[in-house]
């Protein structure tokens, strides 16, 4: 087995200390593995914890219950136990995450934001820029916008910048949180192509897609989070 993501008996409960220490159990006992070249789609209604699970794998949320490991440099690394430095290295070289939001420092150009993951791997600027241009063009971001900061872009444009940034480095593991949520049909088709290309290259993908057509086009397998739901 060469599981790229392994999730064993993972649960998530939020404790809100500022609101009378209310506890909000979200899910429990999630066990799931993702192999290279497959795209596993998380199913279930809003609020069931799909995004939370992706964030836990990315170490953006803490995993205090159960175990999540990601294969990095050939061996599984326990994300909850890993030092911040190791997690940053995993994010730099192994695992990408496309969220619905783009958070950037104002004034940095779109081209530079998209090329940054490649530059951080030591790729020189010209090559990173060239690849960024190709992706931005495929995703239909007009060339005059490339030198501008995406701060003032529309929601759909920001989302496409985010997708370009997520896919540029060809990470072996990708987490996709509704990457097509605010895209038109043509751009959605491009994102499906990008996902299919990544799968063909052996990327292990775990994603959330509300759009049924997208889900059917990319899913190798589905995982229903309703089975792990915990009643509050």
């Amino acid at each position: 087995m060469t599981q790229m993501i392994s999730i064993e008996n993972v649960g998530k409960t939020f404790t809100l200390h500022t609101q009378g220490s209310a506890t909000i159990p979200v899910f429990d006992n999630v066990t799931l593995a993702v192999e290279p070249g497959e795209c596993v789609v998380l199913d279930g209604p809003s609020g069931i914890g799909k995004s939370s699970l992706l964030r836990m794998i990315y170490a953006n949320y803490r995993c205090l219950d159960g175990r999540i490991s990601v294969r990095h440099d050939g061996s599984p690394i326990d994300i909850a136990e890993a030092s911040p430095r190791t997690v940053l290295d995993i994010r730099r070289r192994t695992m990408g995450y496309v969220s619905q939001f783009l958070r950037v420092i104002p004034r940095v150009s779109t081209l530079s934001i998209v090329g940054e993951p490649l530059r951080s791997l030591g790729v020189d600027k010209a090559e990173a820029d060239a690849k960024a241009m190709t992706l931005l063009a495929r995703l239909g971001i007009p060339e005059p916008l490339w030198q501008l900061s995406p701060v003032t872009f529309s929601g759909g444009e920001k989302q496409r910048v985010n997708i370009a940034r997520g896919f540029i480095a060809g990470y072996p593991v990708m987490l996709l949180d509704e990457p097509t949520a605010s895209l038109d049909a043509a751009n959605t088709a491009t994102v499906i192509e990008l996902i299919q290309e990544a799968k063909a290259q052996g990327t292990a993908i775990l994603g959330i897609f509300h759009d049924t057509a997208v889900r059917n086009a990319v899913a190798t397998r589905r995982f229903d989070m309703r089975d792990c739901h915990v009643a509050a």
Binding site: L16, H17, T18, R55, A59, N60, Y61, R62, P84
Partner: peptide
């Protein structure tokens, strides 16, 4: 203590939660 995005997005300690909120 932790990764910046982790502490800000999923703060555990009462005081960190208060700061973020």
């Amino acid at each position: 203590t932790g990764l910046t995005d982790q502490v800000l997005d999923d703060p555990q300690h009462e005081y960190s939660q208060l700061l973020v909120a």
